[in-house]
């Protein structure tokens, strides 16, 4: 029996494969099948027995800030709070992962983040303020009331920082963006802002968008009543600090002294780099795709704010009627605005 089978097999080896007309050629005997099957795949990099270095742990916690559970996010922030302030790892990657948490849905995460910001040395914060401010703006326009309120806290923290370089960045680099945000908050007609281009200067712009024109516009929605707004105080506080920073000359004595040095030419002062400007050439948009609006001097900022001043005043007027803390803030700000307006008009 076995021998018969063997014979058959042996015979088979020498049998010629039949070629048929119109059929594809059979595979040759030396044909090698290259496909393979595997029962398991090893991933040595994901081994559980591996120990981590400190930088790896740090990166791991940094990545945990994107975790879906709010508790984990908070824990990650607490870890950073313990390790970040005295480490040399404060770079843009850190801020790009923690700054999005400004509009985090969880309150505890946001409050931890604020403590973290306060713990970070302000010198280290300076280069990253622009990144943070973008997220603050997104928080200020957020749909949820409490996120907006907390964003105002972050904004207040930045505006009231001891290092003036921090606050001035907001004013110089994203003046109109923040005005638009405030406009969204207080329901001003911010469409007027977008009609002015950032680089344009001089009287021509003022002529185009006169306050009278803005006032004459029939606006149905009207300004929001501050009473209905939660955390109106925080918002108003932020607004007033912001406007004061932007519209009043707050150069320090030291800088004034620098400015008043004897010059060979009377026009030199005009061509000096502006004071308190961290990125003086940002408006040229040399290193970024999107040109951010740079407003380096008070004049330019005033031109931008002019069309919505009536709206602001309307808000302040309605706030003054409510009295209390809000009323006081509104009154102070309205007085300040009136002063600025008078000063500007006198200049012209």
């Amino acid at each position: 029996m076995g021998s018969a089978r063997k014979k058959k097999e042996k015979k088979k080896d020498f049998m010629k494969t039949k070629l048929r007309v119109g059929k594809t050629k059979p595979k040759s005997t030396s044909h090698t099948e290259l496909g393979f099957k595997a029962k398991s795949i090893g991933l040595p990099s994901q081994s559980i027995t591996k120990t981590f270095t400190s930088s790896e742990t740090f990166n791991h916690h940094l990545s945990l800030t994107k975790h879906s559970s709010s508790g984990t996010r908070k824990d990650a922030l607490l870890f950073l709070l313990n390790h970040l302030p005295n480490s040399d790892r404060i770079d843009s990657s850190v801020f790009s992962s923690i700054a999005p948490l400004i509009s985090d849905p969880s309150i505890s995460v946001r409050s931890t983040l604020l403590t973290l910001f306060k713990a970070i040395p302000q010198d280290a914060l300076v280069p990253h303020i622009h990144t943070i401010s973008i997220y603050v703006r997104s928080g200020l326009t957020h749909l949820q009331e409490d996120v907006r309120a907390d964003a105002a806290k972050f904004l207040n923290f930045i505006l009231k920082a001891n290092d003036t370089r921090i606050a001035m960045q907001l004013v110089t680099r994203s003046w109109s963006n923040f005005l638009m945000c405030f406009g969204g908050l207080f329901h001003w007609d911010v469409q007027l802002l977008s009609t002015i281009s950032p680089g344009s200067s001089g009287a021509g712009v003022i002529g185009q968008t006169s306050p009278a024109k803005a006032g004459s516009k029939n606006k149905i929605g009207g300004t929001i009543s501050l009473e209905a707004m939660k955390n109106a105080t925080g918002h108003l506080d932020a607004l007033s600090t912001f406007l004061r920073l932007g519209l009043s000359d707050n150069t320090t004595a030291e800088e004034k002294a620098r400015r008043d040095l004897p010059r060979c030419n009377s026009d030199t002062a005009k061509h000096l780099l502006p004071v308190n400007v961290t990125a003086p050439f940002a408006r040229l948009g040399l290193f970024s795709v999107n040109k951010s609006m740079a407003t380096e001097d008070i004049g330019a900022r005033y031109i931008l704010i002019t069309p919505i001043i009536p709206d602001i005043q309307k808000t302040l007027d309605s706030g003054r009627l409510e009295g209390g803390e809000i009323g006081r803030l509104c009154k102070q700000l309205a007085d300040f605005l009136a002063d600025v307006q008078a000063e500007r008009e006198s200049l012209q």
Binding site: R137, T141, H142, C181, G183, G184, V190, Q191
Partner: peptide
Amino acid sequence: LGQFQHYLSL
């Protein structure tokens, strides 16, 4: 417009 602002900032 508030939401549009948020869109812009995002």
